Simulated assay, not measured.
Amino acid sequence: MKRRDMLIASASIALTNRTAIAAPEFPRSDTLIRYVVPFAPGGLTDVMARTVAQKLAEAWKISIVVENKAGASGQIGAEQVARSASDGSNLLAITSNHAVNVALFPNAAYNLVKDLRPVALLANSPMLVVVPASSPLNDFRDLMAASKARLLTAGSSSNGSATHLTMALFNDLNQTRMTHVPYKGGAPSMLDLISGRLDVIFSNFPESIVHVKAGKLRALAICSAARHHVVPDVPTTSEAGMPELNVESWTGLMLPAKTPDGVVDRYSREISRIMRMPDVQERVKSQGFRLNFQGPEEFAQFLNTEISRWGRIIKVGNISPE
Rank of each mutant, 00 (worst) to 15 (best):
M167T: 14
M190Y: 03
Y110I: 09
K285P: 00
L253E: 06
L91M: 09
A70S: 08
N97D: 14
L220Y: 09
I209Y: 13
M190G: 06
S134G: 12
V316W: 09
V130Q: 05
A219P: 02
L44V: 06
R273V: 14
Y35M: 12
A23P: 15
I222C: 04
P126I: 00
R3Q: 12
Q294C: 13
A103N: 08
S238W: 09
A93E: 06
D265A: 10
L245K: 04
M277Y: 08
E244V: 02
I319A: 05
L32Q: 07
N101W: 01
D265P: 00
P27E: 09
D115F: 04
P106D: 08
L191G: 01
R276V: 00
S308H: 06
D30G: 14
V230N: 06
L198T: 08
L253S: 06
V113T: 13
P136S: 03
D142L: 05
L152R: 01
L151W: 02
D115S: 07
S308E: 10
P232W: 09
Y267E: 07
L173E: 11
D279T: 10
G155D: 03
Q80N: 07
V200H: 06
G262F: 07
T153Q: 05
G71K: 10
P243W: 02
I307L: 08
S156F: 13
T51G: 10
A49P: 05
V65A: 07
S161H: 10
M1Y: 03
S135A: 14
L15C: 06
L7F: 13
I313K: 04
V263N: 02
L220F: 08
V230M: 14
D261L: 08
I209C: 12
P321G: 15
N111T: 11
L255R: 02
V231M: 15
V181A: 07
L193Q: 09
N159L: 01
I209R: 13
A11K: 15
A240N: 09
